[in-house]
């Protein structure tokens, strides 16, 4: 196979040239590939779907980490579910106020492969002393976790078909709500609504049951093609969405790092949703 053709949708498909194939697994349960594309750099795909590329991963990971962390402002305990490539960890650990990062990944092999073939994703993040790495099913982990442990939960999941399926379930949102501290927030990967409007509807229904303030924010990640993708947002504290630009800028400057995509302006603007999406949510 000299090119990768995505198999997400029946009538439309994006196609990447494979300039060098680094890795291809075919276990009974999944088909994972890591290859180089001249424009995108290293690309990881799972079961025919683009997971991450070196060229545009910063948009996804920065938005998913910094929006909840800076909205919260004093997160100390952070849970990452999934995120085996290490890039979410890389972004979370840029916040010096975070004291402990628990990362729960179901597949140890993904971590090994990513460290070997996608080193720019983790950039040494797995060595962080604040990290507690747990190889386990995310659902099992939250189910067995004590209540009120985390300030921020980030569910960096794959597509809702396959191992990531449970991370889109009603039970998962309920357990996450339980293990969040008061005033905590969870952010989730929620797909490209232009092509899969049902995903926001379903998440609104399931997540909205457990959080007083449930909404979505968005960013356009070019290789998740189809325009903006959404991130699910769940918190009992509506004030987390009212933090001013000035305060966000202050928190960012105190954190002392330079994002490539994230700005306080984008942070606030990303909660503005297009009409078609609002309509779908209001149905």
């Amino acid at each position: 196979m000299k090119e990768f053709q995505e198999t997400l949708y029946d009538s439309i498909s994006q196609c990447f040239r494979i300039d060098k194939l680094y890795y291809e697994s075919k276990t009974e349960h999944q088909h994972l590939m890591i290859f180089h594309n001249a424009f995108l750099g290293r690309v990881m795909t799972l079961d025919g779907i683009v997971q991450t590329t070196e060229r545009d991963e910063f948009i996804y990971h920065e938005m998913m980490a910094h929006v909840p962390l800076l909205a919260h402002g004093e997160a100390k305990e952070v849970l990452i579910v999934g995120g085996g490539d290490g890039a979410m960890l890389r972004e979370v650990r840029r916040h010096p106020g975070v004291e402990r990062i628990v990362m729960v990944e179901i597949d140890a092999e993904v971590i090994e492969l990513a460290r070997k073939y996608l080193p720019n994703h983790s950039q040494g993040a797995f060595e962080d002393p604040r990290l507690e790495l747990v190889i386990s099913d995310g659902m099992e982990f939250v189910r067995n976790c004590e209540a009120g442990r985390f300030d921020v939960i980030i569910a960096d999941s794959t597509d809702p078909i396959g191992p990531g399926e449970v991370l889109f379930s009603d039970d998962f949102y309920a357990e996450c709500h339980r293990v969040l501290k008061e005033g905590g927030v969870m952010a989730t990967q929620n797909g490209v609504p232009f092509f899969q409007l049902d995903e926001v509807r379903t998440t609104r229904r399931r997540m909205g049951r457990h959080f007083a303030d449930q909404t979505f924010y968005s960013a356009a990640v070019p290789t998740y093609h189809g325009g903006i993708m959404t991130f699910g947002w769940g918190s009992d504290e509506p004030a987390l969405r009212q933090v001013s630009e000035k305060v966000l800028a202050q928190r960012l400057s105190e954190a002392g790092f330079q994002p490539r995509y994230y700005t306080p302006e984008i942070h606030l603007a990303s909660f503005a949703l297009p009409r078609y999406l609002l309509d779908a949510l209001e149905e």
Partner: peptide, 11 residues
């Protein structure tokens, strides 16, 4: 159906 979709069969 899920297995088919994961295998990239969409019709």
């Amino acid at each position: 159906i899920k297995a088919a979709l994961r295998g990239g069969s969409t019709t």
